[in-house]
């Protein structure tokens, strides 16, 4: 099975691709997106996560959210493996556009080209954008 295809073998499940495209600390949109991802995982739904555009900033290492008295999103994101969330993808052009490399990121991710993203989207039943 292609790694881009979620496991829908459980009954009454829909696979959801969460597209996270917000910067981490401009309001709560990024936080609420991550919470939705974690909820889907807790309810054992097949899911994928794609970071695109400004969303790649959520993955930046060395965030010090306490400097603005905010909850550190990095801690939440780092818990993805504990929730068995392993299908984490990043749009490669978004990384390049922001001069970021994989070793700047706090999670292991798979980078995708436009064609890869199209395949990822096609392989999920629902897409939710945050």
């Amino acid at each position: 099975m292609s790694p881009l295809v979620p496991d829908n073998s459980m009954n009454n499940t829909k696979s959801t691709l969460f597209i996270l495209r917000s910067t981490p600390y401009q309001g709560h949109r990024a936080l609420e997106g991550i919470e939705a991802v974690l909820a889907a995982s807790v309810f054992e739904q097949p899911l994928g996560v794609l970071f695109i555009g400004d969303g790649v900033w959520q993955l930046k290492k060395q965030q010090q959210a306490e400097q603005i008295e905010r909850r550190n999103l990095a801690a939440l994101l780092s818990s993805f493996p504990l929730y068995d969330i392993e299908s984490v993808y990043v749009d490669e052009s978004s990384l390049e556009g922001k001069h970021l490399h994989s070793n700047d990121l706090l999670l292991p991710v798979s980078t995708l080209s436009a064609a890869g993203m199209a395949e990822l989207v096609a392989n999920h039943d629902t897409v939710l954008t945050f």
Binding site: N12, T13, K14, T16, A36, A39, A40, F43, D125
Partner: peptide
């Protein structure tokens, strides 16, 4: 909770 969103999706 968010479970209702997940349920709605299903």
């Amino acid at each position: 909770g968010l479970g209702q969103l997940i349920d709605a999706n299903c």
